[in-house]
């Protein structure tokens, strides 16, 4: 027998990515090599690339542009992509486009974002407090739950018109519209989160006489993060809609007003460009901020799940 046969396996290095601490003080060495699932390996390289999320999203975007361009060819009511881009570029940089002087971009955008931020900064905490109270107290639930549900059922356009009626052509109207739109979304989601906290965990906390601070921070707030994030995402999107509607119908400045300005002037490239701007802004916010927050908040939920789509190889 050679020395090699008797040699004990080398102890694993502490930070070796191929080792895994099982908790039983055993270190198991995992196989290196291709660790992708077997069904993923069965696709050829180009097909695998097509399955990547960012490639799929890029394809969707290109299809959208192709449909747009097609509609431009068959209808004179749809401006071309090139025309919209050049119009918005002139709007941003200033200058003349089609005989009209442009250049009001940053002012309306900054104003709208300011109103939006103020509205959310008021609406989200107010909705959170209301949601926690409705979820935690039967008395408050009896008093306010149905009312909040009714408010949730009202479309953003109603809040927009009401805010315009109450506050006229001021900056207060769009802010109030954002606040009123955000509150019920956050409140209802958070209250259902509080009610969904596992009673077994509440019993455990009671048996251990867990300090109130820990119960509020770790159990109540920690347990409602997923619902809170859902509420906040909805508040962000519907709040933005409601802001734009108020500005469209009842403001003399802001992004919504600027879109309407070009609509009234029958400048479709301007109108479409500003509408696209709404979409781009809310998409960027969702992708760069809200989804990342959500991913971070859900990192504890790593149960193996096989979705229907994955099961069917879609």
């Amino acid at each position: 027998m050679t020395d090699v046969a008797h040699r004990a396996p080398a102890p694993p290095r502490p930070n070796d990515p191929t080792t895994f601490a099982s908790g039983f003080q055993e270190i198991a060495t995992l196989p290196t090599g291709d660790l992708r699932p077997a069904d993923d390996r069965s696709y050829s390289a180009p097909l695998r690339a097509l399955r990547r999320p960012w490639v799929v999203q890029l394809i969707a975007f290109l299809i959208l542009l192709a449909v747009w361009q097609y509609l431009n060819v068959v209808s004179d009511r749809v401006p071309s992509i090139e025309n919209v881009v050049s119009f918005m570029w002139t709007e941003i940089t200033g200058g003349s486009h089609g005989g009209m002087l442009l250049g009001e971009f940053w002012g309306p955008l900054g104003l709208s974002l300011q109103r939006y931020a103020i509205g959310l900064l008021i609406g989200i905490p107010a909705g959170a407090v209301l949601g926690l109270l409705i979820g935690a107290s039967r008395w408050v639930r009896g008093l306010l739950n149905d009312t909040t549900l009714v408010l949730l059922a009202l479309p953003a356009v109603v809040w927009a018109f009401l805010a315009s009626l109450w506050f006229g052509l001021t900056s207060t109207a769009p802010i109030v519209a954002v606040v009123l739109t955000a509150i019920p979304f956050v409140a209802i989601n958070l209250s259902s989160g509080v009610r969904d906290i596992d009673p077994a965990l509440v019993e455990m906390s009671k048996a251990y006489r867990v300090p109130p601070r820990n119960r509020i921070v770790d159990l109540l707030l920690g347990g409602t993060v997923p619902n809170a994030l859902t509420g906040v995402r909805l508040a962000f999107t519907t709040g933005w809609n409601s802001l734009l509607i108020v500005e469209w119908f009842g403001a003399t400045d802001g992004v919504g007003w600027r879109a309407r300005f070009w609509y009234d002037a029958l400048r479709y490239p301007g109108f479409v460009g500003w509408v696209f701007l709404f979409v781009i802004l809310i998409t960027l916010l969702d992708r760069l901020v809200l989804r990342r927050l959500e991913r971070r908040a859900f990192q504890w939920n790593q149960k193996p799940t096989l979705s229907f789509a994955e099961d069917w190889g879609m």
Binding site: A200, L201, E203, A207, Y208, V210, D218, L219
Partner: peptide, 24 residues
């Protein structure tokens, strides 16, 4: 002061093992 081991572990799923310990 009571320490209670339940039939199921009753851990906060959104807290790490250490933070579940410190929760009580």
């Amino acid at each position: 002061q009571v320490g209670y081991v339940f039939q199921e572990p009753r851990l906060l799923p959104w807290r790490t093992v250490l933070n579940n310990m410190l929760y009580v």
